[in-house]
Design a protein around this nucleic acid. Sequence first.
DNA 1: ATAAAACAATAAAACGTTTTATCAATATTT
DNA 2: AAATATTGATAAAACGTTTTATTGTTTTAT
Lengths: 337, 337
Amino acid sequence: MERVSIKTIAEQLGISVTAVSLVLNGKERGETSGRVGKEMAEKIRQAAREMNYEPNNLARGLKMGRSETIGLVIADISNLFFANLAFHIQEHAEKFGYGVIITNTNESDLKMEKMTKILERRQVDGFIIVPTEYGEPYVRNLTRRNIPVVLIDRYYPKLNVSAVVIDNYKASREITNNLVESGCRHIGLIIYKSALHHMKERKNGYVDELKDHGLFNPSLIKEVSYSYLSEDIDIAIESLLMKDETIDGIFFATNTLSLMGLKRMLHADPQALSKIKVASFDKSDAFDFMHVTIPYIQQPIPEMGKSAVELLMKQIKTDDKEAVTIKLQAQLEYNKV
Amino acid sequence: MERVSIKTIAEQLGISVTAVSLVLNGKERGETSGRVGKEMAEKIRQAAREMNYEPNNLARGLKMGRSETIGLVIADISNLFFANLAFHIQEHAEKFGYGVIITNTNESDLKMEKMTKILERRQVDGFIIVPTEYGEPYVRNLTRRNIPVVLIDRYYPKLNVSAVVIDNYKASREITNNLVESGCRHIGLIIYKSALHHMKERKNGYVDELKDHGLFNPSLIKEVSYSYLSEDIDIAIESLLMKDETIDGIFFATNTLSLMGLKRMLHADPQALSKIKVASFDKSDAFDFMHVTIPYIQQPIPEMGKSAVELLMKQIKTDDKEAVTIKLQAQLEYNKV
DNA sequence: ATAAAACAATAAAACGTTTTATCAATATTT
DNA sequence: AAATATTGATAAAACGTTTTATTGTTTTAT
């Protein structure tokens, strides 16, 4: 009922709140000031235990000027990739005694602005953000005021802000090369139509690799829009399957794309996978049920979360303003067939 | 740099903080006290806008005794079912001006205790909890102190606390009946070995429905443990496939179980699905790639989230201590084949 | 003209912490 | 015995709000 505060304990014991605060923060042995005797300290600790005292983090945050809370702005928590990322960020933040407030943007720039504002009001000590396509101004707005920010999964190349990403270009080349090595000669790409740099890198990796093998054909690139995903994918798949030179490979740039694309492919032609080899960024549960090998890029999600938290913590604890970009390597893996 | 507070604005305009606070909270037209003139009010609003003032929610929360924050304790955010639930809870809480702090328990009772403590320190106004198997004492610890709590997805039947659940028993009977109606006579069940009430209900639904048809056979129930999931499922599937009376149906009690179970089944026998009909609680992405019809129970996730938030809000705003259990109905659906 | 009512604005206390400066008492050194 | 150090404890300010009680000032009613 009546919340027990430091004051409650002080009154109970007939001493000052200072003493209680000092002891409960392990600062009772100050050099020059703020000392509490051994027996008194023990009495305080015991009282706190008995009364089930839990510190009020609002008050502490107000006083200390930090909330020990991270604001996490995610594009879509119901996408497994991001949900996993959120999970690891949280697990790691906890080790620093930090809590995490998660918010969604649904890839909307407007919501991104709104969410950063809401989190600021809650006095988060820093942000980890999966930024939206045109959210750059809102990120800049934060960094300009020296608020700690780490971007994750994606970043704005022109913006000087810390980020944790993977080498999308390299991974994309690698997996495209894998298709080529397996004998594919006409390889389609299904990718989001987006200004986001990581999407461009995935596209460039595919393009450059195919050019190196003299296999590049711009008409095999299908860009789909996030807003009309289902329709666009249907169109893309159909037009790829109708090509004159029958295509023998498709590279999907995300797991959502591969999931939806595979559905459509197999719906149009149950035998499609025996003629067309598929590769993808990120794994999907469906792969394990395909009877062919599907290479995919496995991103190091736990490390990404860990790095992001650590990068942010460094910014928070020191006021080292230098922007650091951590580029992690992704793995090429295969489903079990 | 220097955070702008209500005081900054007051000084800027050479007036009192009271005036600023009143205006910014729309309380400038008090009946008997706390008035601010029209022109002054406008000046304040403009200054606030120009200076990009954002209120400090820590200070406000401290003063008001509420943080406008919900503590969400989830069993596993990287499970799509819970991720979706979290998403909807958040979307809905936002409409009330509430933020959500999400934490994970990984089904561990210890972590559940820890997480509720952490959230309490952060002064959340209430909890929405997916409780763990033996987490009952920690929930009771909260309700005993009149802290608003809503359980979701699962609940403790003996504990008098608000909850949002689906009618697991009914759904389970329904889907079992569906298998029977399609001609299955030897139907296995793969379910978690757990004391959680909703699991028992799922089991009971299956048992009672089969008994009604004179088809019940206890040796077809396989209980797997959360900690050794992969191994236990392999064993369960194998032993079901080896049965004397060849089984012709399997009911998986969760989407994780069906996903892993299907993998194992198809690995053991690629044609398994032509002999054994499968049904499941919750949908999995894999279903769309099976070439047979798979009935599954679709839980109304958005409504669950909405109801939980609304129930919690009522507890927070009024101090209506009465526990309410909302039992939603789940739908029987089919994959597109 | 005066009393009453309405209006505008503010001072100050409070929420629960942390921390600095200060004080008093005891112990240690000269 | 006096001077100095050490120890134990506290008062008070501050963090940024909200809100109540109070004080002036103007307008309206008598």
